[in-house]
């Protein structure tokens, strides 16, 4: 699956709904296999005001849509955009029928020149988070093909939860997160390989998209 995500920060949050409607209609016209276009929830950090996520059957469809979307995101109403194009990485689903949940995406940037063996270890440990933290219902870790925004985003870590408390509670507070995984992000830990600037964005989800 060929995916595209855009985290859009707007000048006037009152305009989010209209922009979401435009983007949604455009994605439908471009035969997006799946799409999620929704305002971000409080607690997002560098996550934009609008989370827009799309999946296509092939790279050409995705590129065509990306080109069509660009003019909507380069108007004065849009302050900034962080985003990625990527192919689905490894993931899993413990609740494929999840409805009325929460979708969360983390865009992160691994240092250029990081040892590929170390990066693979980081990826492997990250993919084990749902094993230890069952509140993560569905998940996928992918590498970016193309990135826009504040960093050259290298990875996309997507999760779905039954509700926001699964993200704020078990995901954040489980020791597998803070005492194990976070060392890849922590500037005080010599294992750190991930840039401190992250995009943490989440929104309401009607049905699973992973």
């Amino acid at each position: 699956m060929y995916k595209l995500t855009r985290l859009v920060t707007v000048a006037d949050p009152a305009g989010v709904a209209a922009l979401a409607d435009e983007i949604h209609a455009l994605a439908t016209a471009h035969a997006a296999y799946r799409q999620l276009v929704a305002p971000t929830l409080v607690g997002s950090h560098f996550g934009g005001d609008l989370l827009a996520h799309f999946a296509f059957d092939d790279a050409v469809q995705r590129a065509d849509f990306d080109a069509a979307l660009a003019p909507l995101l380069t108007t004065p109403a849009v302050v900034s955009v962080d985003g990625v194009a990527y192919q689905s990485g490894l993931g899993g689903r413990s609740d494929p029928g999840l409805a009325n949940g929460v979708y969360r995406v983390l865009l992160l940037s691994v240092d250029e020149g990081a040892d590929p063996v170390v990066v693979a270890r980081f990826e492997g440990e990250t993919r084990m988070m749902p094993h230890y933290i069952p509140a993560i219902r569905n998940w996928q870790l992918s590498r970016a093909d193309k990135a826009v925004g504040a960093r050259r985003w290298t990875h996309i870590w997507e999760q779905e939860y039954a509700d926001a408390s699964g993200l704020m509670g078990p995901y954040m507070m489980h020791p597998y997160h803070w005492a194990r995984i976070d060392r890849w992000f922590d500037p005080e830990c010599p294992d750190r390989i991930v840039d401190a600037r992250l995009c943490h964005s989440f929104c309401a989800l009607e049905a699973s998209i992973l």
Partner: peptide, 9 residues
């Protein structure tokens, strides 16, 4: 020469 930081209980 080397350094580690780890977390425990």
């Amino acid at each position: 020469v080397s350094r580690r930081r780890f977390f425990a209980s």
